[in-house]
Design a protein around this nucleic acid. Structure first.
Lengths: 206, 206
DNA sequence: CGTCTTGTCGACCATCGGTCAGCGGACCGT
DNA sequence: ACGGTCCGCTGACCGATGGTCGACAAGACG
């Protein structure tokens, strides 16, 4: 007689919708800026249902991330058939391009990563994984084994990328090519300063 | 007749003790790892008293930071009477040295900074302020005005420092001199790649 | 010894992440 | 059309958190 109190969906469909909504919300709000109660209200659903599908807020957040993270990894993975210098360039363009497309979400993501260890793992995994592939490519091409100080240089360079790209987002007058040039140049300079000359040469395309 | 239920201290004295305790606690625990109730209990005082002296947890945290932050700023500020390359080196040694001395607190601090905007402001202020002074010194010495891309390079380099130093803390076999060399080298490479050649020359000591 | 200032506290609040017993949609066989 | 049944879904609840407030009492001063 009366209208139903709630709409019942199939398990997979409900889950899909919740993740989809989460993807949107976590672009505008970082992890601690939004509560499970708010998310549930936004979804027109009880908080308990959210916890029925996801064991914790962190796991829910991770679930909203994995799709785009996998997309990024795929785009940014260097092509092993290319010479390392070119593969590096391609990966950088892909990385910077992806961030440009998701700039709002990227900033929120970095904030969330600092709060939720699980998210930090994902970010780290993507970044370090990419870096490792790059370095491996260079090392293979140059025959040089990375030293501890070279590893520190790479770790620093990864942070450099985030910092520089973040700053670049606030300088719309600077061309993307210029940024990429800066990123390559800083990697070169860092590797050289770390005494990993032949790695740097491989990166420079020599 | 009975012993007093609590000891009453003068306003300034109580505040001083609370800040002092906070300094210790926030070295071992980051902002969200410890609650105001725990802090109060540790201080042998009611939570309400904490809030009587500090309007919020964030402000309390900031209060526990300012002393050491000012100490760091003072140590790291470049000496304008020195040639810029030497002033840069001195500042870097001071910065790295300070972090080595406070390594546990430094890691916790970075975590807290990602959570509390107010703390992030302080960290940023110290870092960017130092960088600005460094860059101004180089610019003055070289007569070159920093371009937008050069500013991006510097922003990236600041992140490089944190990333590299953090990684260095996990590689105790690497000498501090090597680290400093890497930092200078990456700054050089970045400025050069940003097309700020004469800034780089000034940094190199030329 | 009483009085007054104000440092101090216990009790309280909304909200947070998270849990649980059980209500009630909607599809089934009849 | 109807009763049964599976399971998607909810409201009420938990302990802990950051934060507030009126009232008590410590201790200096007369």
């Amino acid at each position: 007689m009366s209208t139903p109190a709630y709409k019942r969906l199939e398990n997979d469909e409900r889950r899909r919708r919740l993740v989809e909504l989460g993807e949107q919300l976590f672009i505008e709000h970082s992890f601690d800026e939004i509560s499970m109660a708010q998310i549930a209200r936004e979804a027109g659903v009880s908080k308990a249902l959210l916890y029925h599908y996801f064991p914790s807020k962190q796991e829910f957040f991770v679930a909203t991330l994995t799709t785009r993270a996998e997309e990024l990894v795929q785009r940014v993975t260097p092509d092993p058939s290319l010479p390392p210098a070119q593969a590096l360039l391609r990966s950088l363009y892909a990385y910077v391009g992806w961030i440009s497309e998701h700039r709002d979400g990227f900033v929120k993501l970095l904030r969330s990563a600092a709060i939720v260890p699980e998210v930090d793992d994902i970010v780290r995994q993507v970044r370090d994984g990419t870096a490792t592939r790059i370095i491996d490519g260079l090392a293979e091409a140059s025959g040089e084994t990375p030293t501890p100080i070279a590893r520190i240089a790479v770790a620093g360079w990864l942070s450099f990328m985030d910092g520089a790209i973040l700053a670049w987002l606030d300088h719309p007058d600077v061309q993307q090519d210029q940024l990429i040039g800066l990123l390559v140049g800083s990697l070169l300079g860092s590797l050289t300063a770390a005494g990993a000359g032949s790695l740097a040469q491989a990166a420079a395309g020599g």
